[in-house]
Simulated assay, not measured.
Amino acid sequence: MEFRLRVFSEVAKSLSFSKASKTLHLSQPAVSKHIKEIEIRYGVKLFERQGNSISLTPAGHDFLQYSDKILLHYEELENHFLSLQQKFPKKIKIGASTTIAQYIVPKSLAALKQRFPDTAFTLINDNSATIEHKIETNEINFALIEGKNQNPLLKYEKFLDDELVLVTNVKSKFRTIKIGDLTQLPMVLREEGSGTRHILEHQLTEAGIDINHLQIEMVLGSTESIKTYLYHGESFAFVSIFSVIEELKNNKLQIIDIESFEIKRPLYFVSKQGYQSSIYDTIKLFFKKGHNNRL
């Protein structure tokens, strides 16, 4: 029954039998059969079929809530007893916001893989808002994010301190500026929804600067895109200090100091309120160990 619930959950969240079949590595008729068996067992209709599209019925929405809870408890049960045997599940998904996924997580994932070679780790990365949503909808159980810890449905645990620094091309004549000078510089920003964008807007507002008053030259969806853009122009951007360590060493970018202004931000482990897992606890220990010099 546990696998049948997973089939239903995948169809319900993708609203597509064909997409679910590809994700689950099943034939489409097999997926349809699993759904039909559930409908027969409980005497309900779970999906409305309209041409090539499907939607959840009211009963389907209720069933999804119950199935998510059951699958979550099943995973907690499995994780608990596997940990007693010093074993990890065959597959583990870890979420991470974009900056963390690119510059912080890989080191610890390599250590985890060496310790648990039989486990396939999958890293799901997106901006912080999307990662939090994936936890809410049980697509992933835990993640690492930057930004504000504001969602009351989620539990946040500080992992690491980060700093956003203003960087530009090494050819720039600027070395130090005042906070008010930011409104005169061509700026490149991350997209709305990213943790970097959120904390930047908050800190600038605290300093009396409306982000809409900046000369925003470009909005890009990743730090790597921003860095490449800066190589070939005279723009400025706020990025994580972790993301430019190699560029600073190789004299590709430079940090511009801002008088009496800095942006510190905590990075968090995040999970649903009440979520408990010895597997999650082990993973947190690996990440803390890998970065304990900055905790």
Rank of each mutant, 00 (worst) to 15 (best):
F3R: 13
F3V: 07
R4Y: 04
R4N: 07
R6Y: 00
V7R: 05
V11N: 01
S14E: 10
F17A: 04
F17D: 01
H25L: 11
P29S: 06
S32R: 15
K36P: 01
E39P: 09
G43D: 05
F47G: 06
Q50Y: 04
N52V: 11
S53Y: 07
A59F: 04
H61P: 04
H61L: 14
H61K: 15
F63K: 08
L64G: 02
L64D: 02
L64Q: 02
L72H: 04
E75T: 09
E76Y: 00
L77E: 08
L77P: 01
E78M: 11
H80Y: 07
L82D: 02
Q86E: 12
Q86N: 14
Q86D: 13
K91H: 11
I92C: 06
A96D: 04
T98L: 08
T99Y: 00
T99A: 14
V105A: 13
V105R: 01
K107F: 07
S108K: 03
A111F: 03
F116T: 09
D118G: 02
L123M: 10
I124T: 10
D126N: 15
E132H: 05
E132C: 11
I135Q: 01
E136F: 00
E139L: 10
I140Y: 00
F142D: 02
L144N: 00
K148R: 09
Q150H: 05
N151D: 15
P152S: 11
L154R: 04
L160I: 15
D161P: 07
D161I: 08
L166E: 05
T168E: 02
K171S: 15
K173I: 12
F174V: 13
R175I: 10
I177P: 06
I179Q: 07
Q184W: 01
R190Q: 09
R190N: 11
E191S: 08
E192A: 15
R197C: 06
H198W: 02
H198D: 09
L200F: 03
E201W: 00
T205E: 13
E206A: 15
A207F: 03
G208D: 06
I216D: 09
I216M: 07
V219K: 14
V219Y: 02
S222N: 13
T223E: 14
T223Y: 00
S225L: 15
I226Q: 04
T228D: 14
T228F: 05
L230S: 10
H232L: 12
S240G: 12
I241D: 15
I241N: 14
I245H: 08
E246F: 03
E246V: 12
L248P: 12
K249L: 10
N250S: 11
N251Q: 14
K252E: 13
Q254G: 10
I255H: 03
I255G: 08
I256S: 07
D257E: 12
I258Q: 07
E259R: 12
F261P: 10
E262D: 11
I263W: 00
F269L: 09
V270K: 01
V270Q: 03
K272I: 03
G274E: 05
G274C: 05
Q276E: 13
S278D: 11
T282R: 05
K284M: 09
L285C: 08
G290D: 14
G290F: 00
